[in-house]
């Protein structure tokens, strides 16, 4: 029992890599006349592992990362600690739930959320 306690203590001291550390990707969000566009920096994620789900008013982006350094003897510098990405967005009522475009290129996820017809700007003819 005591031995176990000692082990746990030394494990904390060694500062092991976290088993599961999800970070929120940095995003830009802009609006065009017909859509909202979210671009998210997700380096190391893959198109196959990418998961984009809409449930009610919530849009969730998830992507796991594969281990990056198989066969490594030692790390000389380590700044990338996360093992995955996760971020949730709340959708306004003006977004058409059915019309979402997703693209993944150069480690950047681009989501295009189309506005519902009601929210699109339109000109009203004067009679």
């Amino acid at each position: 029992m005591n031995a176990n306690h000692t082990n746990a203590g030394s494990a904390v001291m060694r500062r092991p890599a976290p088993m599961d550390l999800k970070v929120a990707p940095s995003v830009d969000i802009y609006e065009t006349p017909d859509a909202f566009v979210i671009t998210a920096d997700m380096p190391g994620a893959t198109k196959q592992g990418m998961e984009v789900t809409i449930e009610g008013d919530s849009l969730v982006v998830r992507a796991p990362l594969a281990p990056r350094h198989p066969g490594t003897v030692s790390m000389l510098a380590r700044e990338i600690h996360h093992t995955g990405y996760e971020r949730a967005f709340t959708l306004g009522g003006d977004i058409d739930r059915a019309g979402v475009d997703a693209r993944f290129e150069l480690g950047v996820l681009t989501l295009k959320l189309y506005k519902s017809d009601r929210a699109k700007p339109r000109e009203i003819a004067i009679r």
Partner: peptide, 22 residues
């Protein structure tokens, strides 16, 4: 950009996070 530098038996591997950079 964030960097990992790994040493292997026969080589070094430097990984940089450069999303959106062609």
């Amino acid at each position: 950009p964030a960097v990992d530098v790994a040493e292997l038996d026969d080589r070094y591997e430097v990984k940089l996070e450069l999303p959106g950079v062609p």
